[in-house]
């Protein structure tokens, strides 16, 4: 008996339509990701990585094929139901951080809790403090987001992504706007979260970044090219110590 995968797609395809012009971006994606994995989706720019991640993260919907989340088809979900899943089960770390400007670190991390349907208000502060501690920014929690360095901002975004304890964290080029040292520090944080049991799906075009993951899925022109275990998984913490 095989367990039900967290994420499963069957011949999933995606096209964009702009004024009746169809741009096909993803073709026949078949994918299984289990609970607790750390997967890198790798490929050149424009290959469809972000599009795939948005569909898997319920920010967008496929044009055809099936997407099953925890074994349940998602095709019938309306906008409100998709928003509920985003509140409960998934979270995102974006390349450009996307923090609220002129707002403190604490309030930025609090944001997803405002939209969470079940976490009670009295637990909020504790959770926010804990998430900020996880990314090592406790001493900055009263700072405004724009007063932080890029690496610190991305760690705030990571704290925001784990404050609701979602079932999967999506990170789209999380190191793309960072210098290599800050980038490795961010990857170390993600590896630590994975070690603690979080499912992480990383999107990147860099081989060096992808090598911090357990499993690497190569994607080219909207098709899966290869899907392999990463035999040479690096420890970001060690790389960081070497630098």
């Amino acid at each position: 008996m095989t367990s039900i995968p967290l994420i499963e797609t069957r011949t999933l395809s995606k096209s964009y339509f702009n004024e009746d012009v169809e741009t096909a971006v993803l073709f026949d994606i078949d994918l299984r990701i289990e609970q607790g994995e750390f997967v890198a989706i790798m490929g050149p720019s424009g290959s469809g990585k972000s599009t795939l991640m948005h569909i898997l993260g319920f920010l967008d919907t496929p044009t055809s094929g099936a997407y099953l989340f925890k074994g349940k088809p998602t095709v019938d979900l309306d906008d409100d139901a998709l928003a509920r899943i985003r509140a409960l089960s998934v979270s995102f770390v974006f390349q450009s951080f996307n923090l609220l400007p002129r707002t403190t670190v604490f309030e930025n991390v609090m944001l997803p809790l405002l939209y969470h349907p079940s976490i009670p208000e009295r637990e909020r502060e504790e959770r926010v403090k804990h998430a900020i501690e996880m990314v090592g920014l406790t001493d900055r929690s009263g700072h405004l987001s724009n007063q932080l360095s890029g690496g610190q901002q991305q760690r705030v975004a990571i704290a925001r992504s784990l404050v609701t304890e979602p079932e999967v964290i999506f990170a789209d080029e999380p190191t793309g706007n960072l210098d290599s040292a800050s980038g490795v520090a961010v990857m170390a944080t993600l590896q630590e979260l994975h070690r603690l049991g979080h499912t992480i799906i990383l999107v990147t075009h860099e081989q060096t970044t992808a090598e911090f993951a357990q499993r690497i899925i190569h994607i080219h022109d909207g098709r899966i090219h290869s899907d392999t275990r990463n035999a040479r998984q690096k420890s970001a913490a060690q790389v960081h110590a070497l630098k």
Binding site: R86, S91, L100, T164
Partner: peptide
């Protein structure tokens, strides 16, 4: 617009 996008990404519904 980006702030609205972010709120939606973390779970805000249209009515929120």
């Amino acid at each position: 617009t980006r702030e609205i996008g972010l709120r939606k990404a973390v779970g805000a519904r249209g009515k929120d």
